[in-house]
Write a protein that binds this DNA or RNA. Structure first.
Lengths: 135, 135
DNA sequence: CGTGATTGCGTAATGATATAACGTGTGCGA
DNA sequence: TCGCACACGTTATATCATTACGCAATCACG
């Protein structure tokens, strides 16, 4: 565990939280993560929140604002992490992660038009996924 | 107070909450709204949340997911209420509401490509507004 | 070396956001 | 008049997130 520049070496708690999210394959709340890691020694919410903060910073995890939940990134290491969009199925809860240049470009354009320095975007689409849409 | 089809007649609590948001001119949390309406007879969070639910339904108020707050709509009555985007200044907290057809179109296109039935979108851009950006 | 800065960790307490569950009243239409 | 839909009021509780404190390991650098 060296200088910890990014994701090259996670701490124990970070690795535990990352593991829980990867295994879940979908969004989890911080408290659900905590419950799943009780046997691994985690006891307090703060341990989970601290790990999540770092994982988000490293680009390994996304926060879903409209769900108050966290999900493992499907494209770790790629650019545009901060302009990722999500489709969230209101029926089954599945989350599809989308990296779209046209969308990112439009967001940047809107910001520029408004003389707004864009740091990060939250784009979350709610509806029904292909598997859940009525015939 | 008749059939209450939409915004044509707000109930007392709805009007109080709407008034508080309009007067604020910016985002307020549900609990802040409650505090400001104590003298008007509101006592419990649920009274505020119920009013907010209806106001959002009527298209008079937006929920800002990344802030856990609510803001009066600047374009009440217009279409595309559910595809509105927001720029939120991390410095001064100001919120700019944006209705952009190109953006809405791209979101709808992405949904269509994924066979996703899009009901609502959350688009919130974080950064620094024109007044707060460094020279 | 050694000392100060940084970072992660553990714990307890608290704060902030949101909903569940229950009962009341009122207007309206069958 | 009865039943339904809806808004309301109250209490309690659930859920999400942070503050505050202290300890230990690591690392840069004199």
């Amino acid at each position: 565990m060296q200088h910890g520049h990014a994701s090259d070496a996670l701490t124990k708690n970070q690795a535990l939280v990352m593991g829980a999210l990867s295994e879940a394959g979908g969004p989890l709340s911080a408290y659900t993560i905590l419950d799943r890691l009780r046997d691994d020694g985690l006891r307090a919410p703060l341990q989970v929140y601290r790990a999540l903060d770092k994982l988000v910073e490293f680009g390994l995890v996304h926060r879903l604002e409209s769900l108050n939940a966290f999900v493992a990134c499907r494209h770790p290491g790629c650019d545009g992490h901060q302009f990722t969009a999500f489709m969230i199925c209101d029926d089954c809860g599945s989350v599809i992660e989308i990296a779209d240049n046209a969308l990112a470009g439009r967001l940047k354009g809107l910001a520029q038009d408004a003389d707004f320095v864009l740091e990060k975007s939250t784009v979350e689409l709610r509806g029904l996924c292909a598997g859940c849409r009525p015939a």
